[in-house]
Write a protein that binds this DNA or RNA. Sequence first.
DNA 1: CGTTGCGTTGATCTCTATCAAAAAAGGTGG
DNA 2: CCACCTTTTTTGATAGAGATCAACGCAACG
Lengths: 221, 221
Amino acid sequence: MSLHDTLQHIFLFDTLNDKDIQLVASFCSLRHLSKGEHIFHEGDTADAFFAVVSGKVKIYKLSPDGQEYILAIQGKGHLVAEAAIFDQETYPAYCQGLEDTTLVRIPKDDFIQLILKHADIALKILHAYSKRLRYFVMQVEELSLRDIKSRLAKYINENSMEYNGQTVCRLSISKKELAALLGTIPETLSRTLKYYKDENIIQEREQDILILNSTKLRAHL
Amino acid sequence: MSLHDTLQHIFLFDTLNDKDIQLVASFCSLRHLSKGEHIFHEGDTADAFFAVVSGKVKIYKLSPDGQEYILAIQGKGHLVAEAAIFDQETYPAYCQGLEDTTLVRIPKDDFIQLILKHADIALKILHAYSKRLRYFVMQVEELSLRDIKSRLAKYINENSMEYNGQTVCRLSISKKELAALLGTIPETLSRTLKYYKDENIIQEREQDILILNSTKLRAHL
DNA sequence: CGTTGCGTTGATCTCTATCAAAAAAGGTGG
DNA sequence: CCACCTTTTTTGATAGAGATCAACGCAACG
């Protein structure tokens, strides 16, 4: 797929006419990321943000003693680092590919010029910001008011899908990473999963978590 | 001070000419809030956001069992609920006056129209969003990787000022509220303050915390 | 095969919430 | 200004959640 076609499918730009897409294409570029590769590190100069075309990246921070905390995992259609663009000069976290990933790189300065001409794009990115902000408010709330049982239950609940009669949550990330995403450590995650398994609320099968009793699971939310 | 003059001093509008300020004044209004009074509750329809003119408000959430968590305390010059405007329909938290407070109420729909005409205002609010987002990212990081000693040290450090030779942190909120802001309870805050006092790192005097040993304090960050 | 990293399990320890109660601080009405 | 009541703050004792440390099974991989 060409850059032009790719851009048309990014929600930020999907109202633009052909001529304007052409303009956007003139300053955007595709960036491929192998598994484990970084697009940026915390503290790097933030001169661009990204839209995920395919694959998945994790945004994470490191504590002074090296512990990792995952702020978000962004897949197809998500924006990455859009928050760093209108404020400071540097990225506030690390961004690394969880698998082979393709992104569109959107340079800061050109995008600002675009907004000044197309105010409706400003509204769209404001909308994206609002969603992101709401997500973080939720995170803060969770971390300060909920325990790990509850956070895990929420994760499973929100990431499960109906799959020929079964409600399944596919773990597309490692348990180590899930732990970091839930704000805990692998040992505790393992024990919490065991708790739910012992209570016959869930069951593990390869990459999947089968939900046996969604009522009981929701009771932990 | 008239609404017109007040608006001119809000950073969102400080580049507008007199005629446009007139326009903004036509849809904005002043709102006075007594101590303890709410502007909005979680779940209320979000049809406006606010700018604090004087006083102070707290934005907080309640857990199912009634525990309060303060997301932010906003004083003069800050925007309130700007995040709720471009996304969903409802406020995600409560907002209550900590003291007698005056705010400008900015209705959502009119503001969106304004942005479409003045794209530079879009940039300003995007800037405000970025700052807010960065703040929450920091909060999430703190809550998941730092203990309470560290969070308190950070608070004292960031809210202290030089005051004739002394480094002082004025507590403009109650300790109960400070506890809720740090994501803990008053008992634990009290004990943590005691720890720092016993270590001769700080000293309390009326509304103030005197920093006796900022090196040791920073060592806890 | 040895090595390396992930996941699980067990024992222990630390931090923080909870419960209880006293002390201190603030109002309020007389 | 004082007695009274309410709320905040502090202190103590206890319990529980989750981190840490250590060890082991297991799969992937050179």
